[in-house]
Amino acid sequence: MTKRTVTKAELLLRRSNPADASAIADLMTTTFGGDDTQKLDAAWWRWKYGSNPAGFQGLVAQDADGHLIGHFGGIPLSVRADNELFTFAQSCDTCIDPAMRRGLRNPGLFVRLAQAYTSTYGIPGVNDVMFGFPNRRAYRIGNRYSDYWMLRQQWQLVSEGESSEPTDTSIQIHEATSLDEDVTALWERLLPRYRCLTRRDARFLRWRFLDAPDSPYRITLARSKTDHTLRAYAVHRLARLNDNDVGVLVDWLCDPTDQAAARSLQAAVRERYTRLGRSMVVFLCSTSSPWFGAFQDWGFRVRPSHYVMTARPFVPQLEPHFLREHWYYTLADFDIL
């Protein structure tokens, strides 16, 4: 690899735009060496950033020749907390051209991009909360230079084998290949049950799961047998996690008091992965969520994860104590799977 040196005078930091799609994807591929599970190309950028119903954020760094040498992305989410709408933005896809990493003095381009990103987007009226699951290197640097706040050490729930819980006969479980407006109705109906929750309407879920290039996600729904009312949904997929091929429960929405639907739905998901020869199912959610206890009741066990949940609020209503206590998140709120 040829080492390149860029001086400060030759460096331009600016907001990303759709014309950068291919260059950002190429930079990501160069930096991370490609990803077996997701092809990083212009279509990927157009889906992940260009099609997000809540918009996109991002900064790029380019050298004097116009080559992109750094990217810091943000995925905004529309979140309802105590009947107010807020914008939470996940920091992601942070990368620096490997040839550049040693070319700048400390703090390096990574830090300067991160600081510029926070200055640009971390202000009231733009982002109310910035959050993420940084990898260890990014956390180390972010903690030092960008005021990352540890919200919590993130735990994961892991099951092995089928559920011993009986399926409730009043519940109908079926797989879906589309998401209709009744998921929006479910989200609206459950808002009083969750004080801080991403807008999980059909538009968001279609973008997040169905529109993803080569979508690996499966959707399982739980309905009342009598009137077919949607009671709960689960989005899941096969993935490599914890050095194992496992089923991952990526998203989960259900009334916390609706034990019949919840029990039956988790049993169906586990049964599916057992059938596929993947007896381990992993679910990740906020520790304070009622589901953290419920899944343990159904045989899931708590294990450490590699993730540190970081979040930094920019409005007083969303102080860290509130976020720790009331923000229900799953992997649907993140881009890692």
């Binding site: 735990w155 520790t287 304070s288 953290f292 206890g293 343990q296 066990r301 708590v302 294990r303 720790r324």
Partner: peptide, 16 residues
């Protein structure tokens, strides 16, 4: 942690 859970301990957030 797993043996505590096997012994009937449930993991809860507590004051974190």
């Amino acid at each position: 942690l797993l043996l505590f859970q096997e012994a009937g301990f449930q993991v809860v957030a507590g004051p974190e």
